[in-house]
Simulated scan of single mutants.
Amino acid sequence: PTYLIESATSLKVISQMAVGYDNIDIAAATAKMIPVGHTPGVLTDTTADFTWALLMTASRRLLEADRFTRSGLWKTWEPDFLLGANITGATLGIIGFGRIGQAIARRAQGFDMKILYTCKNRSDLHLENTLGVDFVSLERLLEESDFVTIHTPLSQDTYHLFSDRQFELMKPSAILINTARGGIVDAKALYRALSQGKIAGAALDVTEPEPIPSDSPLLTLDNLIITPHIASASRQTREKMANMAVENLIAGLKGDRLPYCVNPEVYH
């Protein structure tokens, strides 16, 4: 928060063990010439792997099946019980096409998916051809996708990007995945969409707020998976992130340039 930065009269550096920095007032830090560090690049594949795990888990209703089995209700095989959705050959919509969005597209190629993407600035045609993706509007992406996965930063433009109107555009069979930031999805609208059958399911690694309140109505839904912000939580990746955060911190305390700096204009 801004008041913390303004009141910390001896603050020399802010070092965050994360790629995103929407929780830090960068403008306030820059105004006080305080460099802000983050940990970009090292968690791309780890986060993409986890996103894909959520997508597959939600599509085949694995957690519901596990709960059903553990409860002792499994008595026989039934042809139409716990039916899920095919991934191979389905249409995947990617919102945000930075490192993680592109990593998701590479994984989708292995499942012969039709891949749509939308973002603020369109990628170059060579990259689109290499990854086999089509750039479309958000509206078209929502209307055509069987799976929608969010990989855009949280900003004024993307806050509650998903609300009632967006869920109305999606297929009733669609599944939403969010491993970006919780504030991109309006939680109340998501509850309405899931409980009213406007979409088939969702999987979240991020919520608004975090942690999610224990009395949130979202926790009552069987067609929703919620994990505690662990998309980058592999041992190898978290160790790399910690080392980068320490490098930023030490450099800042020494008065040196941060190796992974969010606001390099403080050095100009």
Rank of each mutant, 00 (worst) to 15 (best):
P1W: 02
Y3E: 12
I5T: 06
E6F: 00
S7H: 13
A8M: 11
T9F: 01
L11S: 04
I14D: 06
A18E: 08
A18V: 00
A18L: 10
G20W: 03
Y21F: 15
N23A: 13
N23H: 15
I24Q: 13
T30F: 14
T30D: 07
T30P: 06
A31V: 00
I34A: 08
P35D: 09
V36Q: 08
G41F: 09
V42T: 08
D45A: 09
D45V: 05
W52Y: 14
L55D: 06
T57Y: 00
R60Y: 07
R61C: 09
L62K: 03
L63S: 06
D66C: 09
T69M: 15
S71L: 08
K75N: 12
E78S: 15
L82S: 11
L83W: 06
G84N: 08
A85I: 01
A85F: 10
G98D: 09
G101T: 05
G101I: 02
Q102C: 09
A103G: 06
I104T: 11
A105V: 04
Q109H: 09
Q109R: 15
G110H: 07
F111A: 09
F111Y: 14
D112L: 06
M113Y: 03
K114C: 04
K114P: 01
K114G: 05
Y117E: 07
T118A: 05
K120F: 08
N121I: 12
R122G: 01
H126Q: 13
N129A: 13
N129M: 13
T130I: 10
L131F: 06
V136L: 10
V136C: 12
S137R: 07
R140S: 13
L141G: 12
T149V: 11
T149S: 15
E168M: 02
M170I: 11
S173C: 04
I175Q: 02
T179V: 13
T179A: 13
D186S: 09
A187G: 05
A189E: 01
A189N: 05
Y191H: 15
R192L: 11
L194H: 02
L194N: 01
S195C: 02
G197C: 11
G197L: 10
I199E: 01
I199G: 03
I199F: 01
A200I: 03
G201F: 05
A202Y: 07
L204P: 05
L204D: 10
L204I: 05
T207L: 08
T207C: 10
E208L: 06
P209Y: 05
P209E: 04
E210W: 06
P211L: 03
P211E: 03
P211V: 02
P213L: 04
S216V: 02
N223R: 13
N223T: 08
L224C: 12
I225A: 03
I225D: 01
I226E: 06
I226V: 14
P228S: 08
P228D: 02
H229Q: 07
A231R: 08
S234Q: 04
R235P: 00
T237K: 10
K240F: 05
M241I: 11
A242S: 13
A242N: 02
N243D: 11
N243V: 10
M244K: 14
V246I: 15
E247A: 15
N248S: 04
I250V: 15
A251T: 01
G252Y: 09
D256Q: 15
R257G: 00
R257W: 03
R257C: 08
P259M: 09
C261R: 00
E265P: 06
V266M: 12
H268R: 12
H268D: 11
H268V: 03
H268L: 13
